[in-house]
Amino acid sequence: MATSCISFVSLYGSFLRRSLALSGLSSQSVGVDAYTTIHFWGPKRLPASARSPSSNGEHRKPSLVLIHGFGPHGVWQWRQQVSFLAPYFDVYVPDLVFFGESTTKSSERSEIFQASAVGKMMEKVGVSKYSVVGTSYGGFVAYRVAEMWPERVEKVVIASSGVNMRPRDNHELLKRANVEKIDELMLPETAAQLRTLFRLAVSNRVYMPDFFLNDFIDKLYGENRKEKLELLKGLVLGQHDTPNISPLQQEVLLIWGDQDNIFLLDMAKELKEMLGKNASLEVIKKASHAPQLENAKSFNKILYNFLCDST
């Protein structure tokens, strides 16, 4: 049938790219070292010159890095935030290594490696000060970026990201998903497995036919599957019964959905205490693991208020 030749995922991907372009971002790539190339969406103008005061005394906008989670890469997870924030910030949306067009020949697979690549990317484009926002797996990376470069990172937002997880939290997640291995949940290969992920990650679910879900898997989950599984196994955070979480020097905001079934809300409350006096928590009601998609209006307002407070 003719409809079998239509990829709705590809069509929507084109819409997302046009949306980012209309927000003033362009698709770019930079080699961060001899082994690794990072693709990102960022300001069209040259960042180094743009950071200098203009002739009329105005200064450029503050810089903001949006770090995506596991699954679809950045443009899929942050489109609504880019559209809202681009008038106020120079927004950078990198693809983490093995997502989208970012690649490496390195054998490193930890979130520390991902954070190093993001930090080096910002060095290469000439940005010395920026805030970071990370969701889910991207929250692990954002935490590491802030930890590694406290002199560069101004504010930190960790959304729906249990960086304080323990092995038992992972086991409990597998029970909730009714699967035996984490890749069955995070790297779905069948429509049934993707439905399980949506059941845990999204509070307002709509029925999607198998052909649509299979298209989603083929276009967004099929790439670099072996390497992505290595990324899951390569996480340093979450390997010990006592979380190795230290307070950050920066102001930190945690944003969570009250119905998150990937990282439960209790984890957010514990993480706030671990991060110390500079950390605060905002809970979005009737949202699950992707509040930036499910309730973008509330998420954007919370994010904007935090980033612009005393900035």
Rank of each mutant, 00 (worst) to 15 (best):
126 G>V: 06
226 K>H: 12
60 R>T: 13
98 F>P: 00
22 L>V: 04
4 S>K: 13
191 A>K: 06
48 A>R: 11
195 R>Y: 06
66 L>Y: 05
262 I>P: 00
97 V>C: 10
221 Y>A: 02
136 S>Y: 03
42 G>H: 02
90 D>K: 01
76 W>G: 03
119 G>S: 08
209 P>F: 10
118 V>P: 00
277 K>L: 05
199 R>V: 04
128 S>Y: 04
123 E>V: 07
266 D>C: 09
212 F>C: 06
180 E>T: 14
134 G>L: 06
198 F>W: 04
197 L>R: 13
171 H>L: 11
199 R>W: 02
236 V>S: 04
211 F>Q: 11
101 E>N: 14
289 H>C: 06
117 A>D: 03
111 E>S: 07
168 R>Q: 14
69 G>V: 05
116 S>D: 08
61 K>H: 14
46 L>F: 03
117 A>S: 14
45 R>A: 13
47 P>N: 06
128 S>N: 10
69 G>S: 05
99 F>Y: 15
229 L>H: 11
177 A>D: 11
56 N>F: 07
98 F>A: 05
76 W>M: 05
36 T>M: 02
45 R>K: 09
173 L>N: 04
57 G>K: 11
161 S>A: 15
70 F>G: 05
151 E>I: 01
6 I>V: 15
167 P>K: 14
277 K>S: 12
169 D>C: 08
308 C>N: 08
161 S>R: 01
47 P>L: 07
145 V>D: 00
253 L>E: 11
206 V>P: 01
37 T>C: 03
310 S>Y: 04
65 V>C: 04
67 I>V: 15
87 P>T: 08
86 A>E: 09
140 F>W: 10
261 N>Y: 01
17 R>D: 07
152 R>F: 00
114 Q>N: 08
288 S>D: 13
79 R>E: 09
209 P>W: 06
45 R>N: 06
56 N>C: 13
